[in-house]
């Protein structure tokens, strides 16, 4: 059976990464910004698994790293959501443009 070439997976993951970065800088909703960060982390996961499967198939390091990234990302998001909920109680909005008590 013919396999998908490694380059295709790397193009996919790079595209995901830069979509995430683009989303992080252009979206103004905090939850959407968090989702963009998740896109970045998923692109990292694809990278790790692709490299592991194609270049270093005799070890599992990339897959282990992916498992840890998923777990830590879950913790990170739950903490971020908790902080955002607390902010929503104060500001009644999750728009970063309107959360501007401190400025230069």
């Amino acid at each position: 059976m013919e396999q998908v070439p490694l380059a295709h997976l790397l193009i996919l993951s790079s595209a995901l990464f830069f979509l995430g970065v683009y989303g992080f800088f252009t979206r103004r909703n905090m939850i959407t910004m968090l989702m963009s960060v998740e896109l970045i982390l998923n692109s990292v996961n694809i990278n790790f698994i692709a490299f592991n499967k194609y270049l270093f198939p005799n070890q599992l390091e990339g897959i282990f790293f992916t498992l840890f990234i998923i777990a830590v990302a879950a913790a990170e998001v739950s903490l971020a959501i908790a902080i955002i909920i607390n902010l929503f109680r104060k500001f009644n909005t999750v728009d970063v443009e309107e959360v501007d008590t401190m400025k230069f």
Binding site: F17, G20, F24, M30, M33, L34, V37, I40, L41, S43, V44, N47, I69, E76, L79, A80, I83, I84, N86, L87, K90, F91, V96, V99, T101, M102
Partner: peptide
Amino acid sequence: SSEAGVKYILSSAFSTGITLF
């Protein structure tokens, strides 16, 4: 304080993503 928390967690998550890539 909550604004500071949000700014820190968002920038920290983003920077982690970049490091991981």
